[in-house]
Write a protein that binds this DNA or RNA. Structure first.
Lengths: 139, 139
DNA sequence: TCTGAACCTTCCCATCATGGTAAGGTCAAG
DNA sequence: CTTGACCTTACCATGATGGGAAGGTTCAGA
């Protein structure tokens, strides 16, 4: 199966499949006489794994670890869970940051009448001429 | 005031101040005889504006627009509010995506006993040998 | 006056995951 | 034998930020 088919079958673009090979996330694919890459069932399985992990927001490095664990039949589920929980807290941090921005913005937008005149608490807040709603020092 | 002081005063790094100048977000700074950049009160004010906008997650292009609106005394608060509400919906989308990942991961982690044995619903789910919790096609 | 530290300058490179494009090789159908 | 759809490598771009090199400036202390 050539790369385009593998891409269509797994939802990982040809570009990214080549990239993953180049950074060593997946082994170098077999080649045909034409020099075209050739993919089999095991390759598709691995690419599907990677796509699902990406969909859950795991980084390439985390996926590298997950692939090792997947291949290791003597792994402990503890190790997998630890990696997952770490990622979970990363997600929670990001969500909290975004939620804080969102809350501040929503408050400012609510205080802005949105009419023709220039007076605008949003601009004033950015300009520092009005106090910003408290933001608890994130990061 | 030279660039390091301006950086310390506004919370925008020297690196970023030069970068903002290079991409035209701020006008080219005055130079002293030494060729060092020289910043005044108006520059600090603008940099503070930019930093606060970045803290709220606005992109450089959005900040470009916000700076134009800030400078325009004939602006309508409607325009500012529209830009803000657009950014707000962007934030909501990102938050929803992350929250969905988070929910899926939390569910998987909860189903994983985290013991010594290799059986792990997280790995199985990534491998596609167990069904993934439904994910409503985002993006 | 010399020297060293602490600034500043420009220029290039790296991140992270992904996409675009260009120049050229391969293959199957018409 | 041409056409079009695929493949190959190689390079460049994103967005916001930082790191570092190589060299100029300024100021304080010996």
């Amino acid at each position: 199966m050539q790369i385009g088919e593998a891409a269509a079958a797994t939802g990982v673009s040809s570009k990214m499949i080549r990239h993953y090979e180049q950074i060593g996330l997946i082994p170098a694919a077999d080649r045909r006489d034409s020099n075209y890459r050739d993919y089999g069932a095991a390759d598709l399985h691995r690419l599907g794994f990677i796509r699902r992990a990406r969909d859950l927001g795991f980084s390439i490095d985390e996926i590298r670890d997950l692939l090792k664990l997947w291949a290791d039949k003597r792994r402990s589920s503890r190790a997998v869970k630890a990696l997952t929980l770490k990622h979970l807290t990363d997600l929670d941090e990001k969500i909290a940051q975004l939620a804080e921005m969102r809350a501040t913005l929503a408050h400012l937008a609510q205080c802005c009448d949105g009419g023709d005149r220039p007076d605008c608490p949003i601009i004033e807040s950015l300009a520092g001429t009005a106090p910003m709603p408290a933001h608890h020092h994130h990061h």
